[in-house]
Design a protein around this nucleic acid. Sequence first.
DNA 1: AAACACAAATGAATCGATTCATGTACGATT
DNA 2: AATCGTACATGAATCGATTCATTTGTGTTT
Lengths: 337, 337
Amino acid sequence: MAASIRDVAQRAGVSVGTVSNVLNRPAEVSAESVSRVHRAIEELGYVRNDAARKLRAGVSTTVGFVVLDGQNPFFGDVVRGAEDEASRHGIAVLYGNTDEDVARERMYLDLFEEQQVRGVLISPYGDIQPRLERLRARGIRAVLVDRFSGDGRFSSVSVDSVVGGRMAVEHLIETGRRRIAFVGGPFEIRQVTDRLAGARVAVENSGSPVEIEVIATSALTVAEGAAAGARILDRPRRDWPDALFAANDLLALGLLQGLVIDGRMLVPHEIALIGFDDNVFAAAAAVPLSSMRQPSRMIGRTALRVLLEETADPDLIPRQTVFQPELMVRASTSPRH
Amino acid sequence: MAASIRDVAQRAGVSVGTVSNVLNRPAEVSAESVSRVHRAIEELGYVRNDAARKLRAGVSTTVGFVVLDGQNPFFGDVVRGAEDEASRHGIAVLYGNTDEDVARERMYLDLFEEQQVRGVLISPYGDIQPRLERLRARGIRAVLVDRFSGDGRFSSVSVDSVVGGRMAVEHLIETGRRRIAFVGGPFEIRQVTDRLAGARVAVENSGSPVEIEVIATSALTVAEGAAAGARILDRPRRDWPDALFAANDLLALGLLQGLVIDGRMLVPHEIALIGFDDNVFAAAAAVPLSSMRQPSRMIGRTALRVLLEETADPDLIPRQTVFQPELMVRASTSPRH
DNA sequence: AAACACAAATGAATCGATTCATGTACGATT
DNA sequence: AATCGTACATGAATCGATTCATTTGTGTTT
């Protein structure tokens, strides 16, 4: 059997209370005891039992992160940022992927509640306000990630998607495009509707006669992007848009692939293309992809930091952190000639 | 305060033992009691305290997964597969990213040990055999992922990288290439050396006068791939290889980007290119990328299943599961003309 | 020498779920 | 009527770390 704190105490010739103090508040213990206890720990290969610790002290060393789409490099980066910050505090990130599925989302929240995690980061899909309220009643705080908390009941860390959508389309208009299509969906995802809303604002603000249409997809994936691209090419040429704004880079990369005819890229000469997220593959695409950069890692770090601050001081009122996206101009939106 | 099992017992008018039985072995409890207990649980919003459960029963509902490179879509898929299987068993995956850093790897293993996870999945970087032995001594089993366990002390689930490397280069040779460069590194990563070894086998087996050189990279990333591509173009044209085998798709996609001159792709006409992993972005690249497909999700699922079987029956002896990679031929390795 | 202050160490009580030896009730069997 | 078997239910003991009221020890002050 693994050594317990009692074994360590016996070996070091001190009481269990002292061992616990060495572990948790060494300043209150004599140097002599500290070193004896450490030696005993070393010799026995003692490892603290987190379950017992959590049970008695009520503190947990894990936070849960419920992620919308684990395949998306953007979320990979966000998780990575949260993890970086967490590891600095000796905290582990329990990670759950919902894949835009309400049942899975619910399951992970249940699991985290049983585990009594220190707190929860979540990029929500369904309407989970009630669940989060319940968690809070239990003393588990939540921070929304990549999603603004409309009513301010929870803290959030996100990027302004409306502004991002506007900037993207303004850029398309400035470079001379007039027939713009927004490619994205499903519209249950808040980021999608926000980006579209921003796009519409840009169109309305432009003095020029710009048209915008919506091409709906059923998911934000490469495959859906490619399919949407093929659908566009099926139309008579005069009905083609001259610019595409994809709701994220996965779609955009799929579109890029779909917009190849006989090995000839239509991008950017016939059709400009801009994505959202600026993931690692955007710059690396054969036609380097213009995109709206989100500080993904920073979002993760910040969300974790906010969460820890809130759990440290439960009286803190929720706050919304909003980052601004940044336009990355690359070849896929070069003006024609 | 949150309701405990005692509160539930009181409300339902039964003993705590009965409540526990309802939760864990309902067959041994009368239907009457079951329904009363369920009603009480409902009314109180009772949620089981996992810490107390783990402390007493010694069973954990989490497994740890130590991942080499969380940014890599390949590992994203593997994690996803493990998660799918786990959620089916009501188990959560604690996930830690090492980013090819020995210290981080160690940190996560410590954390998992404290948490007394049910078991550990790990795609190892450093030499962790001793750590895993120690975990086992504590009753925590480990399964190696994407890495064959040389001495058979642990179970493993992986793809035969040597065979994969051989198949990739055989394909290059069959399509008429003769000056092959292997692009990859660091060589601390076992998969890299295995793939190179396979490549060498293919060269030796070929009757033809095929040359192979090694272009080393310091990481398996898109950026490193692009840099390697630029280095190749810096050479006088007669020293160019006519085919590249990249150790993974991230490198290959970077190479693709690097091998663009004045908007003209050198791939596949001047240089053929094949990657490894067949990640989502491979098929979507502007020059669709030939690659060695690994059943990534299946690897994750299988690893988790093996782990659960072993923890259920500690007497099981370790077994090695090896999948075969599959050659996906796309435009990037088309014969010239 | 007595009184006091302070530092350090002690160990029993505690967190909440599980387990298991023991108890109870009731019908079946002799 | 006595005995037995079965089905349920009970509740005290337990897991291991933490906490805190108490004790012990040492030095200082009067």
